[in-house]
């Protein structure tokens, strides 16, 4: 670890609620820390003692396989004990409030809470109510910081730097926490972000964000160094935000044909899970430009880094209050 953190910068946040409040320096520090964990997966003994004796709870109030497994594995590799808490197997169904649930878990001595929730701001509420560290694993359509960090990490890993890169984010921007966190992270790291999608899927006053907006994928695809395809949210169809999946795919799907117009070294990304044949053709998802599986591997290193850092900040805070 020491060779990757050769700066006098000191990480001080015991919560990771979003990337909007983070400085470029802080984001880079997480990425640098993750680099130290990257080669872990290649070791024969994939375990470090950093969180030994600590308890991490995965509080997931929404379905998730990838993110939850990634956090579980990351915590185990750091030797933490992990409690899995999902909405269906908990007392939330009996009407217990989020705060009550969290306080109960805290009473069992939980050190870090990883929360996924369908309400924007739920991690903030938690961070105000309990003493444990809180990591946002996706809240409503607010933020999904670890996803954006692993996206930035993957881009940096391959392109060397994000400075000056043109990065397209395609799809339902309005209801996407991945898009929000990506916008904050990527622009802070010096990239130009172009949001692509129909006006009905753009958030209110999108022009105030430090991004460009295009309603046409064809008009911008040749300029992009990276394209991040968001998943079509079928539950949004009821809101009549676009007429049909067929029409959406026609204009915004990443097909082999469309990819031919792009730069040959464009990186194709997707936060998963894929809707093959809808927002992305299988041949593209599995093709040479795709880094989708690399994103997943890197997610592990990012989540180890975040768990490691928030715990370190909590330890420092405890030291400061009891010198």
């Amino acid at each position: 670890m020491n060779q990757t953190t050769k700066t006098d910068f000191q990480w001080r946040r015991k919560h990771l609620l979003g990337l909007r409040d983070l400085s470029r320096k802080e984001i880079e520090f997480i990425l640098d820390t993750a680099r130290g964990f990257e080669e872990f997966s290649t070791r024969s003994i994939k375990k470090a003692p950093a969180l030994r004796g600590k308890v991490v709870v995965n509080m997931f109030f929404e379905d998730s396989t990838r993110t939850r497994n990634s956090f579980t594995l990351a915590a185990s590799r750091l030797s933490a004990d992990v409690i899995e808490f999902t909405k269906t197997s908990s007392s939330v169904n009996k009407g217990e409030t989020l705060i009550d649930t969290a306080r109960n878990l805290e009473a069992m001595g939980v050190d870090i809470v990883v929360i996924r929730h369908n309400a924007g701001g739920a991690p903030h509420l938690l961070s105000r109510s309990i003493k444990a560290c809180v990591i946002n694993a996706g809240d409503g359509f607010h933020e999904h910081p670890t996803q954006a960090l692993l996206d930035a990490y993957t881009i940096r890993q391959i392109k060397g730097s994000l400075e000056g890169l043109k990065i397209g984010i395609v799809g339902d921007i309005a209801h996407s926490r991945v898009a929000r966190s990506n916008i904050h992270a990527l622009t802070k790291l010096g990239a130009e972000v172009i949001l692509v999608g129909p006006p009905t899927l753009m958030p209110a006053q999108v022009q105030n964000l430090p991004v460009q907006v295009s309603y046409s994928l064809d008009a911008v695809i040749d300029k992009l160094d990276v394209i991040n395809m968001l998943r079509i949210q079928f539950e949004r169809l009821g809101g009549n935000l676009f007429p049909s999946v067929r029409e959406y795919s026609h204009f915004y799907g990443l097909t082999v044909e469309r990819l031919k117009k792009a730069k040959p070294d464009i990186l194709v990304m997707h936060p998963g899970p894929l809707n093959r044949g809808l927002e992305i053709e299988s041949e593209v998802a599995d093709g040479p430009n795709s880094v989708i599986l690399r994103q997943v591997s890197n997610g592990l290193a990012i989540r180890m880094a975040v768990l490691f850092l928030v715990n370190q900040a909590a330890v420092l805070e405890a030291k400061d209050s009891h010198p």
Binding site: G120, A204, Q205
Partner: peptide, 13 residues
């Protein structure tokens, strides 16, 4: 309120 702050907070406006 529907507006830029709702966009940042990811809350329906």
């Amino acid at each position: 309120n529907a507006g830029y702050n709702a966009t940042l907070l990811g809350l329906p406006g």
